[in-house]
Simulated assay, not measured.
Amino acid sequence: MKLGVFTVLFSQKPFEEMLDMVAAKGVQAVEIGTGGYPGDAHCNREELLADEGKRKAFKQAVDSRGLIVSALSCHANPLHPQKAISGEHDKLIRETIDLASKLEIPVVNTFSGCPGDHEDAKYPNWPVAPWPNDYQEILDWQWTNKVIPYWTEIGRYAEERNVKIGLELHGGFSVHTPANMLRLREAAGEAIGANLDPSHMWWQGIDPVQAIHILGRAGAIHHFHAKDTTIDPVNVNRHGVTDMQSYSLMLDRAWQFRTVGYGHDMKVWADIISALRLVGYDYVVSIEHEDGLMSVEEGFTKAVDNLQQVLIREPLGEMWWV
């Protein structure tokens, strides 16, 4: 396994300065945003798509520091009911797949998106209760008419270009649990898999180790984020896990994102890394820093230090004792 970082947290730094900094910390891989919610501070996809020389310079900057690009990330909502938004996000995803193919980057990360509840809707509708039955009807309509057709087409588009899609299982979007990830993969093909982030499992009440087993046995983990979560034992009883308060209201929220090791101890993280190895995932563990109690540099540094203790780096050897 390689230790990586989602470089959106260093968007204020120029590309090569950012690469120098993360390489000096011992990171071996970078995940780079190409637009959408992460922005494109370190990767102008249109420029790179149009200019082979700029693509070579981009690759050289990464290679010369002993790094790899684990994924290009373009988190967005390509199923948004407003056509201007979904059209822009669809273009972003397709262009990111094209760029990943040209740069020989194996994974593109994004969100599944969330449609509205009918063709003329203006806003996404995220049904999470089976009753009243209206919600089931909305869910069936979304998956039959929007989710499965779109991702089947994008799955083919990516597969033709030798790229895999890592969908982040995230609340507010159609794919947010291992079960609906596997439902989509079964319908849309094996190019579609997970960019699994344990932080979003914890607040939904899902054990990330079990999520790794469920998805890993199906070969459905294409990328992995390292981010932690704490659940406040008092506030969760007031607001529930679907707490709609701003992330900035950390004292009052039911749960909040933390840097690695500040939500769960290193035994839990060792179990996560071991589960990844057990199911055959031997790619990048990419740090995502969204801890409201720590600066970017401190949160990133602590995540690196903590993960260095538990990351399994060497190839599996012979079982000499059997």
Rank of each mutant, 00 (worst) to 15 (best):
L196A: 02
Y262G: 02
M319A: 11
A29L: 01
D271E: 15
E160D: 15
Y123L: 09
E137V: 08
K2A: 11
M294D: 00
G33D: 04
F15T: 13
N44H: 05
V8W: 00
S86V: 01
T259P: 00
Q28N: 10
N306K: 07
A191E: 08
N180K: 11
V279M: 10
E46M: 05
Y262E: 13
E290C: 06
G299K: 01
L215H: 00
D232M: 08
G113M: 04
I148V: 12
I68N: 09
D243Y: 04
R65P: 06
W143R: 05
G280N: 13
A303R: 01
R156L: 11
W321T: 15
L278D: 14
V236W: 12
W255S: 13
K102D: 12
G299A: 07
H213P: 05
L72D: 02
E17F: 08
L316M: 15
L184V: 05
R313F: 03
T230Y: 00
I287K: 09
K91C: 06
I192K: 02
R156M: 02
H225T: 11
F300P: 02
D291K: 13
L307T: 09
N133H: 10
M294K: 12
D282A: 12
L293G: 15
A29I: 00
H89I: 01
V62C: 10
I192F: 00
K2E: 04
A71T: 07
L184C: 02
G113H: 07
A187D: 01
Y135K: 14
L249T: 11
F257D: 12
A121Q: 06
W203P: 03
